[in-house]
């Protein structure tokens, strides 16, 4: 898997920095979208971690992230993908594969799932990014992204994804 960063302008830098996020002039756009999904929950007292997961993945190929959770904390995981027209969803399971998500949402480029662990243990967060639109099904924005300009913007067969979490 290629964990390269997607470079985007200063607007996204400001968004990331507003959550104490990434600096140095560039941010990961999928992470920025995940952080955007986290914003309302920060106001509810969730502390969003600086560390996170990101990379690229083939559309529809599920990813599993192992993570230590503590009983007594409440968690939200937020995922994002920046490719126009792509969707993403996130679920959480215990180490036996049983779903433990209490609620979730998915809105095109970002999604979230909440968990209140019943025991302190390693859990599995599943992220699936999908993109299947072609031809006339594309919106103008999506078409723009898929009209190659000197090789830029052409769908390469993989989607960017990012995952962040918060606790309280």
């Amino acid at each position: 898997m290629n964990y390269s960063n997607f470079k985007i302008p200063a607007v996204a830098v400001a968004l990331g920095a507003s959550l104490g996020g990434l600096v140095y002039g560039y941010v990961n756009e999928a992470i920025s979208l995940a952080l955007e999904a986290a914003t309302p929950y920060v106001e509810q007292g969730f502390e969003v971690r600086e560390d996170n997961w990101s990379g690229e993945v083939e559309p529809g190929k599920p990813l599993l992230v192992k993570h230590q959770l503590f009983r007594g904390n409440e968690y939200w995981f937020w995922a994002g993908t920046s490719w126009p027209g792509a969707t993403i969803k996130v679920d959480i399971f215990d180490s036996e594969g049983n779903s433990v998500g209490l609620e979730s949402f998915a809105r095109d480029s970002f999604a979230g799932v909440r968990a209140l662990p019943q025991k302190t243990a390693t859990y599995l967060i599943r992220v699936v990014a999908e993109y299947s639109k072609t031809g006339e099904g594309l919106t103008d924005e999506e078409r723009g992204a898929n009209d190659p300009v000197e090789g830029v913007g052409e769908f390469s067969g993989s989607l960017d994804w990012g995952l962040v979490y918060g606790y309280r």
């Binding site: 969803k89 594969g97 979730s104 599943r126």
Partner: peptide, 13 residues
């Protein structure tokens, strides 16, 4: 927020 499609109750690890 829109509710996400139902997650599977179990995945085969």
């Amino acid at each position: 927020a829109e509710n996400a499609p139902n997650a599977p109750e179990r995945i085969d690890l």
